[in-house]
């Protein structure tokens, strides 16, 4: 056991000495930071539905009245009723930002003409806000005309603005932060074997009184621990940003099992292709294949991470986690066994 520890320590020292683990951390920091920045920061600033950031706009309203009520409710919009030609002239002279013309047909169909500048940020923002208002106006008119319809009109009130885009954080960002270290760890497990094969230092290790499987186990230990450790780091960061993450043990189990699968595959590939420069590419291909294959599971891994983190895990989740753990153990065992056989042959 102490020999195993000595090997693992050597691996860890190598990784730390090369300092490139820093790159791996920076990558994830970048993903985490950049995406939060875009999602929370920039979109928050420009999101038309967030009241604080709405840009003031002057609107000319042409028509018999109706939609202008909703327009006037929006605090950032300044609405003035105008005649059609006057409204167009005001628009062209840039005294209003948009013209909203409402026409009501004989069958009660409301046609809204939206005259906006082509492209440009203010126009885009205005259009996005208009879309929301028009949807609400449509709901309002439908409910009023319920009598003409067979289908019951269902409406859901517009919710207040959330602090952070919930689905984005838990269903996109968090899975990314869970699985990026996993992918890297699998690659690193393979690379340590490649390095030994290419520089022919495995012979030195083998001359020590250790079996090949032991050597491989020592090499696997470090990447296996790195992946959950990095994940925990990101979760700590999220928690600091008031984005709580549920079910840590489940997430650790997920990280460990998937790392086992990819590390097992990485070691086997490295032992098989160790001499050529194609290990990385082969690993990437296999990893993609495994990722695609994982979609066959009852819950795909991304979904799994999202459900665990939001505390919405159900039987489907636990079954899948069990399958992944079993697959991880089997893959690592098979991968290591195969690699051990190949490496023994290397000596000849």
């Amino acid at each position: 056991m102490s020999q195993l520890g000595a090997l693992a320590r050597k691996e860890l020292r190598d990784i730390l000495r090369e300092k490139t683990i820093v790159v791996a951390l920076v990558v994830q920091l970048f993903i985490a930071g950049f995406s939060t920045f875009l999602a929370v920061g920039l979109t928050g600033l420009y999101d038309p539905s967030s009241t604080s950031a709405r840009t003031r706009a002057d609107i000319a309203y042409v028509g018999p009245g109706g939609f202008d009520g909703l327009l006037k409710d929006a605090r950032n919009l300044h609405v003035q009723p105008l005649e059609a030609s006057a409204a167009v002239a005001a628009f062209q002279a840039r005294r209003v930002d948009a013209v909203v013309q409402e026409e009501i047909g004989a069958d009660g169909l409301h046609t809204v003409n939206l005259l906006l500048e082509d492209g440009g940020i203010p126009a885009t923002l205005l259009l996005t806000q208009m879309k929301g208002l028009l949807e609400r106006y449509e709901e309002h008119l439908r409910t009023a005309e319920q009598g003409r319809l067979q289908q019951q009109v269902l409406t859901v009130p517009v919710p207040a603005k959330a602090d952070a885009p919930y689905a984005f954080v838990y269903a996109t960002l968090l899975p990314l932060l869970v699985f990026t270290p996993v992918f890297l760890s699998g690659a690193v497990a393979g690379d340590t074997v490649t390095q030994e094969v290419q520089t022919r230092t495995l012979v030195l290790l083998r001359s020590a009184p250790l079996g090949v499987p032991r050597i491989l186990a020592g090499k696997l230990l470090v990447p296996l621990l790195l992946a959950p450790a990095q994940m925990l780091l990101w979760i700590a960061l999220l928690t600091l940003n008031h984005l709580p993450v549920a079910n840590l043990p489940g997430l650790i189990a997920l990280s460990l099992s998937t790392t086992l699968i990819l590390a097992g595959a990485g070691v086997a590939i490295a032992a098989g292709f160790g001499r050529s420069n194609t290990v990385q590419a082969a690993y990437a291909l296999v990893a993609i294949l495994l990722a695609l294959g994982s979609l066959l599971l009852p819950a795909n891994p991304l979904n799994l991470a999202a459900l665990l983190a939001t505390g919405a895990a159900d039987a489907r989740v636990w079954t899948t986690l069990g399958i992944l753990a079993a697959l991880g153990v089997v893959t690592t065992a098979v991968g290591m066994g195969w690699a051990a056989r190949r490496l023994r042959m290397e000596r000849a």
Binding site: Q92, H110, T111, V112, E138
Partner: peptide, 17 residues
């Protein structure tokens, strides 16, 4: 259909000064 979809929008883009 006029009651089912009571609002239709025409989006018109034009240059300003």
């Amino acid at each position: 259909q006029a009651a089912a979809f009571p609002v239709l929008v025409n989006i018109l883009n034009a240059p300003q000064a």
